[in-house]
Design a protein around this nucleic acid. Structure first.
Lengths: 119, 119
DNA sequence: ATTTTATTTCCATATCTTTGGAAATATGGA
DNA sequence: TCCATATTTCCAAAGATATGGAAATAAAAT
């Protein structure tokens, strides 16, 4: 990932309202939420939210799709993943492992031998 | 990690010069580098660099120690790790694994059974 | 066609950030 | 002590970001 892209992504998340929006969209899953719903839930005025959504969209961290009068926003998990990879590799790459959170491995490592049940 | 702390960390890294400083310090390892050396290598005027180092230090992403006339700055790997954990857990926690970079597991998972050598 | 609802753009204001020269501070060496 | 070197603080200018009301746009519903 290019530096500029990373800086943009970091800047997009480095703001309380926008971080809250992103976190809400992550919990909302791939369908996302309409702008009005985000505005209501986070108590952010429509105009202000629109500005923040634009910032997040420009950083590619959220996607939007229109459905009638509604505009649904959803988290772009791939972009977030790319940003996390940049941070772990390019920002901590000098000493691999040093900056990795202890629980980075969310899914347990695959067993090396077949379990009794699998045999 | 509290939101405010995360926003601070993100904001600290969301600036080209500061991100460059942090990346340089990561490669420099735990000993770090004196401010003047950073200034020279990245071609950032001393006053400007001092401002950025202060910002990084306030976000706890770098540590400093004085040695004579020099002030050595080093990356705070633990703080970076905490930030990465926040991003993976609290920002992608809704769907664990979705935001994890493919290569998150830098160190291979520990084998579940003792190897021949360990027995 | 008119109204209602959803969202965005426009715009002015306020606030925060970045920049770097010059002066201040601090430490070691002559 | 006096000088050289390293870093920080001071300060002012320039630039970027955040905020939200009001108007504009767009798409359904009546």
């Amino acid at each position: 990932m290019e530096i500029e892209r990373a800086v943009n992504g970091l800047a997009a998340l480095a703001q309380e309202s926008r971080l809250a929006v992103f976190r809400l969209l992550v919990t909302a899953g791939p369908e996302g939420l309409p702008a009005g719903s985000i505005s209501e839930r986070l108590a952010i005025p429509a105009a202000t939210l629109s500005f923040h959504l634009k910032t997040l969209a420009q950083a590619d961290l959220v996607k939007s799709r229109s459905a009638g009068r509604f505009v649904y926003y959803s988290a772009n998990f791939a972009a977030m993943s790319a940003l996390l990879e940049f941070l772990t590799q390019d920002c901590c790459g000098g000493r691999p492992g040093l900056c990795l959170p202890a629980q980075a491995t969310v899914e347990p490592p695959k067993p090396r031998i077949k379990s009794r049940a699998q045999r």
